[in-house]
Design a protein around this nucleic acid. Structure first.
Length: 583
RNA sequence: GCCCUUGUAGCUCAAUGGACAGAGCACCAGCCUUCUAAGCUGUUGGUUGCAGGUUCGAAUCCUGUCAAGGGCGCCA
């Protein structure tokens, strides 16, 4: 926001350092952590510690240097005063100019505030990766939400992004499903909620596979026919897979997700086997078939010890594995696109596997192998550290959760805004419910486990998405009431109330928060910022009347409210959470 | 056995190596003739698992240790 001013300051300080033969480039600017006034601060401790002329302890010397700086450099334009306190040099902005700069910049950019134009090579983010013919539960949600908002944030930070989804459309789970369908549900069609119906049938097939006499044998026989490319089974597979895809589309639409590139596991199976042959030929893989599988002994090749372990790349019966397919998939990605980076949003339990196949790709000579990046996240558990498993029946289905959350949100809307029409109420309830579900998964660090429980998932109060959405609604409500048109010429020097000062500071932070969240691939930084921003706005809302303020102050506050609304709306959008106008 | 992650208020979590470790939930006491109370104010709550080390400065970095979870040759 004040890059030029900072640069001038840096030059002044550099000159000061040279005169005293101090090392340069040791100062880092941060904002002053106390509320009430805007400014930047620099700790002088590093400089003091490096000063050869130092004769006293570092803290005292830092204070002395801060005082010397304060007295020797001329206050640059844009700053109103300077002070040396406890080893820090604090510079305060000219308040009216600062507020004007921040608010004008937001109002000029609107929905683009906080974002940069995408440029450069694209980054591919692979996420979601559901299995067809299976139910979606809350565990899958974290992946989608994390991946989706990571994409939004990368885009806003100025990167081109390709959203990729790798679908598990083959394997034993599919065969089970098909076999069960043919035997017990011949000719049935999915209903309105396709994912749920597919999921129910999967659960049934899975149960039969585990408990029903003879069913496993039938499935094995069915698998053999599949392998022999039985045309009837392949036709049924294609048809039923389509049902799953349509169901996923419904869920993605609801969640606000879309993908640019879809990969199917089925399309990389044969290329995977070919890649294994190549590995064997080049001596990287040992072929133990028919008794043993094909393995790449990475530790032996690299001379490492219990670090990369041994990777099985093909079963002894010649069928493929996860690792088999990851090799051609990565090759496909880099052949098709000139990627800056290829990110895999995959849960933390697969860390070793990703490390392994990246190393195999490197050994195969692909120069882009080091561009593969694992965005690891912890899984979602149920209370008592129970892992979600459809077999154990320990799952919370996505469908059930969304339905219940929407029902509860609808109750609140009906109570608060009975005059709205039903379609609008439904839309608001959905936005609130989805936000409430998404927020806890976004606001935690990626590496921390999320424990799902109904009570907190359906809590619309406190540190939650509805709280942030509500702040947006309040800002919107004020602007709507006065028919706010972007007026110019407000005197921002009037924004001197501590909560106004805080709010301007919070708004000013968005661009750098986006950059940092993108750099570190941590949407939770932005989720926490969104909450701080909403809190700052609510504080302002409670303490500073806008509509009934006297005209000059009212104009300045209205512009501030408009800036806050853009900022809240934009931040929510980056998190993949809708920002309703009314709720 | 080897490796990874986590450990902060009763609970769930924050905190670019920087100024006094902050929120929410829960508990208790208040605030709706006033821009929507999905809100706000106040009270209570801490040896940042433990022990060392590095540093002017450590919840943050390093070493050790304890605890929980996860990964490690034919699951994905």
């Amino acid at each position: 926001m004040f890059e030029q001013e900072k640069q001038i300051l840096d030059e002044l300080i550099a000159r000061f350092c040279q005169e005293r033969s101090l090392p340069t480039g040791k100062l880092e600017w941060r904002s002053i952590p106390f509320s009430g006034e805007w400014g930047i601060a620099a700790p002088l401790f590093p400089l003091a510690a490096a000063d050869p002329a130092r004769t006293q302890p570092v803290p005292q010397h830092a204070q002395a240097l801060a005082e010397a700086l304060r007295d020797s450099i001329k206050l640059p334009a844009g700053f109103s005063r300077m002070e040396a306190v406890r080893g820090y040099l604090n510079l305060y902005y000219t308040t009216s100019e600062y507020a004007k700069k921040v608010i004008d910049s937001v109002l000029a950019s609107g929905s683009r505030y906080g974002s940069r134009e995408p440029e450069g090579k694209p980054i591919m983010v692979e996420y979601s990766n559901p299995n067809t013919h299976k139910p979606l539960h809350v565990g899958h949600l974290r992946n989608v939400i994390l991946g989706g908002s990571t994409c939004n944030i990368l885009e806003a930070s100025g990167k081109r992004v390709i959203r990729a989804n790798y679908l598990g459309d083959i394997g034993l789970h599919v065969i089970k499903w098909l076999c069960n369908y043919e035997k017990y549900h011949q000719g049935e069609q999915p209903g309105e909620d396709k994912t749920r119906w597919m999921g129910d049938l999967f659960a049934e097939a899975d149960r039969r596979f585990a408990y029903e006499e003879g069913f496993e044998a039938e499935v094995r026989a069915y698998f053999a026919r599949w392998d022999a490319r039985d045309p009837h089974i392949h036709a049924l597979w294609k048809e039923t897979r389509e049902w799953s895809l349509e169901g996923f589309k419904q869920v993605y639409d609801l969640l606000g997700e879309h993908f640019d590139r879809i990969y199917f596991e089925s399309e990389v199976e044969e290329p995977g086997k070919a890649a294994v042959e190549q590995l064997i030929k080049s001596g990287l893989a040992e072929d133990g078939r028919p008794d043993l599988p094909v393995v790449v002994n990475l530790d032996q090749i690299l001379g490492t010890k219990e670090e990369y372990r041994v990777v099985i790349v093909l079963r002894s019966d010649g069928t493929s594995l996860y690792a088999t397919k990851d090799i051609p998939l990565a090759v496909m990605k880099f052949n098709e696109y000139d990627l800056e980076k290829s990110i895999y949003v995959v849960d933390v339990r697969q860390t070793l596997h990703i490390k392994q196949f990246r190393k195999i790709l490197e050994l195969m000579g692909y120069p882009w192998a080091d561009k593969i990046h694992h965005l690891a996240y912890e899984i979602v558990n149920l209370p008592g550290n129970v892992t979600m498993s459809s077999r154990e029946g320990t799952v919370v289905l996505l469908d059930d959760l969304i339905r219940e959350a929407t029902r509860r949100a609808l109750e609140v809307v009906q109570e608060k805004n009975p005059e709205l029409d039903p379609a609008q109420m439904q839309a608001i309830a959905e936005a609130v419910a989805l936000g409430a579900i998404k927020y806890p998964m976004l606001s935690r660090e990626n590496t921390k486990m999320v424990t799902f429980d109904w009570e907190s998932a359906l809590d619309f109060n406190g540190q939650s998405a509805p709280y942030i959405q509500y702040a947006h609604v309040r800002a919107n409500s004020i602007l709507r009431k006065v028919g706010f048109q972007q007026e110019s010429g407000a005197d921002f020097g009037m924004l001197t109330h501590p909560s106004e000062v805080d709010l301007v500071e919070l708004i000013a932070r968005l661009p750098e928060e986006v950059q940092r969240a993108a750099r570190e691939l941590k949407p939770n930084l932005l989720a926490n910022y969104a909450y701080d921003l909403a809190k700052g706005f609510n504080d302002f809302y409670n303490q500073c009347p806008v509509i009934n303020a006297e005209p000059a102050l009212r104009a300045a506050r209205l512009a501030l409210v408009a800036a806050a609304r853009w900022c809240l709306g934009n931040t929510l959008r980056l998190l993949g959470i809708r920002a309703p106008e009314v709720m």
